[in-house]
Design a protein around this nucleic acid. Structure first.
Length: 422
RNA sequence: GGUGAGAUGGAUGAGUGGCUGAAAUCAGCAGUUUGCUAAACUGCCGUACGGGUCAAACUGUACCGAGGGUUCGAAUCCCUCUCUCACCGCCA
């Protein structure tokens, strides 16, 4: 969530920026500022009363010790009177704090100045593109047909055992998946990211920390017996490693990478976009995450974009990088770059990575701070990105590299896969 | 699943009703000493929200796993919950 101080000090600027994100409930900003002023007044009053009670309690102790029982009793009635005022003040303070928090939860992160205005994905801005779109033979087929032809993935079997969107990868399909994970993790750790293999379920505190709750509750699988959520991305467990942590400046930046399956209910999405590997309820992904000083997050974002770009280039896939417009960005993000690869048989761009700077929005929720050289505490900035999401990479690799007699793998994968082609 | 023990500041760990926001030790920071390093010595060293200030100093309140309760007063007593550890059972 945004810091109330920022809302207060830059009210008009914040409102303007929020409009870039198509956030229209600007009255919430004024409301929360007014509530916070109330909160301060209430707290000052309450603190003063509590101070008199504390003072009186000490007096009573002394009076009792001195044997002056009657005066002690008088002081006690004074305390009792003060307490009558304290109770309602406490109640309204709690109420104010809750209202403030619930409003702050409803206000999305402000976009950075580079973020283009716009409402739909069509208004995203292409930053650059690379690679060459292959020319396929006339009989080229989409990946779901290739998956069947070479016995790589069985969608129907997944339907039977679990439900749609939970495919089985089999034989060379499973091995290719495993090779990709291994390659991605190696690529990331070589760039200085520390590998984590996180829990695949998280508790509610963690889901709040990274912002999945309360706004995206319906997107996650929930295990009511234990009140756990299946993770929709490794970002959730890995970023929460530093929830409620006060770091030393010298410890930053923290660079982490993690493989995990991702579980998404994808409620309300049907139709043509969900065919094959394009949209699944369970898929695999390797994520990169950084926790950095605020002054460095802009540079680090670009560094992460370049990192992902190199990874895609090494797979020899045609790609483009988009800077998302305000309307297409996530709630907690300040700026997001999407990576898409061109799936030649489907003749479609497929999103395979999304790299975002959350600035202090997640950090404020998670209370992740660092102590600077002067001993002052500041919120960190958090960033994350996919490096990479597996299914659409696999779909594109299969489609773009198909020949009549097989599917050639890019060089970097051959040693991992143990063969040059499928 | 059963039984028992526990949860205190960055860490270890004292503290059973007022003198405790919290001993001591370690770690950390600053300085003195020192040919360098090490050692020794001195000082500082929790967080949040307020007041105050240009900024400090200073100052109020809250916080000893979480939430309630008893009391003039709670880290300390009572209740509930969560988590951790140990042993047993089960098990990849």
């Amino acid at each position: 969530m945004l810091q109330i101080q920022v809302l207060k000090n830059n009210t008009e600027q914040v409102k303007q920026l929020l409009q870039v994100k198509n956030f229209t409930q600007l009255h919430l900003v004024d409301e929360v500022i007014a509530l916070d002023d109330d909160r301060k007044k209430t707290q000052t009053q309450l603190d003063e009363l509590l101070a008199t009670v504390n003072q009186a309690s000490k007096e009573i102790g002394k009076l009792m010790a001195a044997g002056q029982k009657q005066q002690a009793e008088e002081a006690k009635t004074q305390v009792a009177n003060a307490k009558l005022q304290i109770e309602p003040l406490k109640a309204s303070l709690t109420e104010l704090e809750q209202s403030i928090e619930s409003i702050l939860f409803q206000i999305p992160n402000t976009p950075t100045p580079e973020v283009p205005t716009g409402k739909t994905p069509e208004e995203n801005v292409e930053v650059r593109a690379g690679g060459v779109k292959p020319t396929l033979a006339a009989d080229a087929v989409p990946h779901w047909d290739l998956a069947k032809k070479y016995n790589l993935i069985d969608f129907e079997l997944g339907n039977k055992v679990t439900g749609s969107g939970f495919p089985f990868y089999i034989g060379k399909g499973a091995k290719l998946q495993r090779s990709l994970i291994q390659y991605f993790l190696d690529f990331n750790t070589q760039a200085g990211y520390l590998e984590y293999l996180p829990p695949f379920m998280v508790n509610t505190a963690s889901a709040f920390g990274t912002g999945q709750l309360p706004d995206k509750e319906g997107q996650m699988y929930h295990m009511p017996a234990d009140d756990f959520y299946m993770i929709p991305t490794a970002e959730v467990p890995v970023t929460n490693v530093y929830r409620d942590v006060l770091l030393k400046e010298a410890e930053l930046p923290k660079k982490m990478t993690a493989y995990s399956p991702c579980f998404r209910r994808e409620a309300g999405s049907y139709g043509k976009d969900v065919r094959g590997l394009n949209r699944l309820h369970q898929f695999e992904k390797v994520e990169i995450i950084q926790i950095v000083k605020p002054s460095e997050s802009n540079t680090v974002l670009l560094e992460m974009v370049e990192h992902v770009e190199k990874l895609i280039q090494s797979l020899e896939l045609p790609y483009r990088i988009l800077r998302l417009c305000g309307g297409d960005m996530g709630f907690a993000s300040a700026i997001t770059y999407d990576f898409e690869v061109y799936s030649a048989a489907q003749q479609k761009w497929l999103e395979v990575s999304s790299v975002s700077n959350f600035e202090s929005y997640q950090a404020n929720r998670m209370k992740c701070r660092y102590k600077d050289a002067d001993g002052k505490n500041h919120l960190v900035h958090t960033l994350n990105g996919s490096s990479l999401a597996l299914p659409r990479i696999m779909a594109t690799l299969l489609e773009n590299n198909q020949h009549t007699d097989g599917i050639t793998l890019p060089k970097v994968l051959q040693s991992y896969f143990g063969a040059e082609q499928i």
